[in-house]
């Protein structure tokens, strides 16, 4: 799949417009349009549903993409797939960190209001941090491998292996533990506490953030391609010099 520059730029423009609309819709309050139902502790911060939660959806999409590209890399040995997996993991870490920061900030002013707590080892929060660490280790592993083909293969194995353990981290365990997040033990599931009106913004916000992540991913893949080409030129020049 290759895109021309013009096509890429028009998608980018459409995404900017889309995200602007999402932002406007998210903040259109007090009026008739999309008034968010008030919940006591949350108050207006219920709107963070449009920003904090899509971070995790985006991260999941990116890690699934990375695992798929790693799988393809194992099957075909194609270094292009390795670059794509690497780019997807890199952007996934960005969204994971943003999700952690926003979640911690949100919780400080709602769940932990009136305390000094910023981080309380809520299971979902901790598991998300662990997931970011797992993908950080992916880059540490890459750095300790020098030969490109071997690096692609070994890190692809680790990436697929990491991806199959993620469901335990994000879905099995948090449901068995006490948590303040929806869907945990004793808490109502997400669909039961969310007003239908909020979905009108929530789903477009997820789509928009995944689109933004796709742009960042393409940009990253392009740098990796250019770097690989530069490396190739460098080694060719070296060989030419030696002859």
């Amino acid at each position: 799949m290759s895109l021309t520059g013009a096509c890429y730029r028009s998608i980018r423009l459409a995404l900017v417009a889309w995200m602007t609309l999402v932002l406007l819709a998210a903040f259109s309050f007090g009026g008739l349009l999309l008034n968010v139902p008030r919940i006591p502790i949350l108050e207006h911060t219920a709107r963070n549903l449009y920003f904090h939660v899509p971070m995790w959806f985006t991260m999941m999409a990116l890690t699934a993409m990375a695992a798929w590209q790693s799988f393809r890399c194992l099957k075909t040995g194609d270094l292009e797939c390795d670059m794509r997996a690497r780019a997807a993991v890199h952007v996934a870490i960005l969204f994971g960190v943003l999700g952690l920061l926003t979640g911690s900030y949100w919780a400080h002013y709602t769940w932990y209001e009136g305390t000094d707590i910023w981080w309380n080892f809520d299971p979902k929060q901790t598991m998300a941090a662990v997931q970011v660490l797992i993908y950080g280790a992916y880059f540490a592993l890459r750095n300790s491998l020098d030969e490109p083909e071997k690096r692609a293969r070994i890190s692809a194995v680790y990436n697929v292996f990491a991806f199959v353990t993620v469901p335990f981290l994000l879905y099995v365990l948090p449901r068995q533990m006490e948590s303040l997040h929806p869907g945990a033990e004793g808490n109502p599931a997400f669909s039961e506490i969310t007003h239908p009106v909020m979905r009108l913004v929530f789903y477009p916000a997820i789509a928009g953030f995944i689109g933004v992540a796709w742009l960042l991913y393409r940009q990253r893949v392009r740098t990796y391609r250019l770097e690989a080409a530069a490396d190739r030129r460098g080694s060719e020049a070296l060989i030419g010099h030696m002859h």
Partner: peptide
Amino acid sequence: LLAAIIARTARRGPLLPMLLFPLLCPLLL
């Protein structure tokens, strides 16, 4: 599996705990 992975790397020192601990969190909990 992770031991087989790190046997293929150049700098083995602290790599195994780094790969292992986050992955084993669910089991440990």
